[in-house]
Design a protein around this nucleic acid. Structure first.
Lengths: 166, 166
DNA sequence: ATGAGTGCAAAGTGTTTGCAACTAT
DNA sequence: ATAGTTGCAAACACTTTGCACTCAT
């Protein structure tokens, strides 16, 4: 489940302190995403490549505006349509954040098996180990019958950097 | 900390299966909120009373649109301004949900010491016991230095009703 | 060649703001 | 009386849509 696409050689990572790692694998992830796109019979167009490249380069969740801002030559409407499509195809995962909908490459997300956490102060989204919350989730499921979906949830808090600077 | 305002007589509640309970205390909570408003030297106006009444009646998080929809005689701009103000005063708590910003009475939130969970299917927000997640939060804080703020977080999952109906 | 995908412009949403009238204090 | 609030309308930012054209297949 972890190595099911090319360019996944550096798989065993700790979930936090990840940011550097992604630039290393960015093109691998990009290639993988394009491969997947092609495999699904979808067309490889320059806007799609561009959007995927942006998402592959940044680990953080990016809003449509941020993606569009990084790609001045791609029309905004196309950015929205492309992100929607990629999300529908399952290639990127979308989650609602304070600033709008945030997108990032699903392969990256799946590989990390993480949980999203957004810093209330700086707004950055980072990844937390999901296992830590599994027990709590199961406990809650037993007690209340509500089944928490950790993958889809976004926790909120204060990141290490912001905690340090105050 | 739990009984610090009038109308809080039914305090010891399990956090789930709460919906009925709120209608009982709705006017108590409303009175408390108005009392607090007054105490802060704020003016008691009919839009404010109306908005608070709506929030006191419904336990679920309501969006500005829902509140406004319930109050056709209050101008939308006023609904937004009122909710903003009440949130700034700390009388209502605001959290970003899929459908926009959700608001509910802070006194209710504080009393319940809960954690928000939104059903991916029906969209309803319910409360989960917060304690279940404390350990996980502390564990994550030790390991990653990210301090999860459970009060501000909104988990996502499938509620009991939706899980049953499929 | 041909239909999916794109760019553009225009229309929707949901939210905010300037200002005159109003009203709780 | 008077400062804080409201209603209105207009502005806003973000997202979606209709349509003609382009380009990957």
């Amino acid at each position: 489940m972890t190595r099911d696409y090319p360019g996944a050689e550096a798989s065993s990572v700790d979930v936090v302190g990840h940011s550097e790692l992604h630039s290393q694998n960015a093109d691998g992830a990009l290639a993988a995403a394009l491969e997947a796109l092609r495999g699904m019979g979808e067309r490889i167009t320059s806007p799609r490549v561009a959007v995927l490249r942006v998402l592959a380069a940044e680990h953080a969740h990016l809003t449509a505006e941020q993606v569009g801002g990084a790609l001045p030559d791609v029309h905004r409407a196309t950015v929205f349509r492309t992100l929607d499509k990629l999300a529908a195809l399952g290639l990127v995962s979308a989650s609602r954040m304070d600033e709008g909908t945030g997108y990032h490459l699903a392969v990256v997300a799946a590989r990390h098996d993480h949980l999203h956490a957004r810093c209330q102060q700086c707004g950055r989204v980072e990844a937390l180990p999901r296992e830590a919350f599994r027990e709590a989730r199961d406990h809650v499921a037993d007690e209340t019958a509500f089944r928490v979906n950790l993958r889809a949830s976004v926790l909120v808090g204060i990141c290490a950097a912001c905690a340090a600077s105050r």
